[in-house]
Design a protein around this nucleic acid. Structure first.
Lengths: 266, 266
DNA sequence: CAAAACTGTGCACTTAATGCACAAATCTGT
DNA sequence: ACAGATTTGTGCATTAAGTGCACAGTTTTG
């Protein structure tokens, strides 16, 4: 990412052939060579390498290669939320430039909020590091409260059920005051949170039809109050959330196009 | 495929990293290096190459890499029928050894039968070549008749509608006699087909809940009759079809397992 | 049946992938 | 808060490994 690096050509070319095969659906080595501009024999050998990996197969009758089921091994590990992760990281970075305080992006995961991305490392106003992977409670953290506030009624019910079953104890059901507070203020908050000296405000991130996660701004309890921070930085937080949400709907829109093999008839 | 070739290592290694990333979901260069056994700096550079292609992204905050949506470009071109294609090619090859006559595997595609795989090239009893991509009619070819015969009622209705709309003329609706003939004989047939001197018998290939295509045996009209060929080779044809169908259900069964990223909590 | 196109493989060339080495940054434990 | 341990990023020399030419064999075209 830093200095644009010298890339590995053999890998690039192999991938290029895979891309091409995905477009065409079926092709001979010569066709692929023409399409990619890679020398024919090189194409041939790259195809063999791909075949050895079980990614492409060759028709026993025709000379053409095509994709095999195992190509899924290259992409099945991808999950939608990863895309959001990238976005969140970028936007959090931008926000840090305006707001000095660090912030986290977290998702609801099995009863608690799982921090997925953070700018703690880059903020001079943070003592924490290694935030990613840590968890915050659903009820007492600003992040958790934001998710609860951003959820639809049915979604919230599901979240509460999951939380109860994974925590093994009943969840506090006085959510109403929390929701009211959120609608009044426009954000959720917590004071003296996880370690007694940390406070935060947070907003939910909403996807197409569900709450994806939440983003917060973290500050020292003795340094300021939620109200003061909100006054100064809520707009930044809001536009950060908006940017992430925009990215989500954008990636959701571009429906992946499957193109079947449509050889020309004679 | 022939002599196991010298594979391209750089490509293999890059793919290995992608595989690993698909398993783990999220990893630092060092982790990937350990997991794959590839030198750390090499791993690092391969990751950069993958990143340059837009396949993986790197968290701006954390050091870990993860997959991006574009990994789908590596596999979206794959279609289920391709898997069948490979199978069909192999099985047709096997059948050719027993039955001297050439045979084709074809699928229904926009109103006609599209030949996808063939052993014409390898049969000494064929004058044709370049069969793949050619088309046979739905009503007068053994292949087409086999698909009609193998379809369920609702499926057949769909096939007929598609055919009518793409041919622009009404389809013959006297299918009943065809079906009756099929159930009586156990195969479909055509005499003096596409070019006057070619005959064939055929069987449908059925997938989980739909007709996938059909396989035929082709012979010279003056050399034999459908009845004679069926007597000699229908068993071979049947076991060929059975092998392909077995392969289809097998690949359909192995449901692809998606594994989400489940980072450990602190 | 001759010409053109394509496939498969050996081989020589030198590009380009690789891993070591080192500096810088980051994390960990006390 | 500080020192040791771990990890990251990059330059560079080495040579392994990717690449394309050449040629023989096969297939397709006209």
């Amino acid at each position: 990412m830093e200095g644009t690096y010298k890339t590995v050509r053999a890998l690039e070319r192999g991938l290029e052939i895979l891309f091409e095969l995905n477009k065409i659906g079926r092709a001979t080595p010569a066709q692929l060579s023409k399409a990619t501009g890679i020398d024919r024999t090189t194409t041939y050998r790259l195809l063999h390498t791909l075949a050895a990996q079980g990614l492409v197969g060759r028709s026993p009758a025709e000379d053409s290669f095509y994709l095999l089921r195992d190509t899924r091994r290259l992409s099945d590990g991808f999950i939608e939320t990863d895309q959001v992760l990238w976005l969140a990281g970028v936007e959090l970075g931008k926000m840090l430039l305006k707001v000095q305080w660090p912030s986290d992006y977290a998702t609801f995961d099995r009863g608690t909020m799982l921090i997925q991305e953070t700018t703690h490392r880059f903020s001079s106003l943070s003592v924490h590091r290694n935030m990613v992977g840590r968890r915050r409670t659903l009820f007492s953290s600003a992040l958790g409260r934001a998710v609860l506030a951003g959820a639809t009624d049915s979604e919230r019910e599901m979240i509460l059920q999951i939380t109860e079953s994974s925590l093994g104890r009943p969840a506090p059901r006085n959510i109403d005051s929390l929701l009211e507070d959120f609608h009044q203020r426009g954000y959720t908050w917590s004071v003296g949170g996880s370690e007694g000296h940390i406070s935060a405000i947070a907003l939910p991130i909403k996807g197409k039809d569900r709450v994806v996660g939440a983003v917060n701004i973290v500050f020292f309890r003795r340094a300021s109050t939620p109200e003061e921070i909100a006054e100064k930085h809520l707009d930044s937080l809001k536009s950060c959330v908006a940017a992430i949400e925009a990215g989500i709907t954008k990636t959701a829109e571009d429906t992946r196009s499957l193109h079947g093999p449509t050889p020309e008839s004679s």
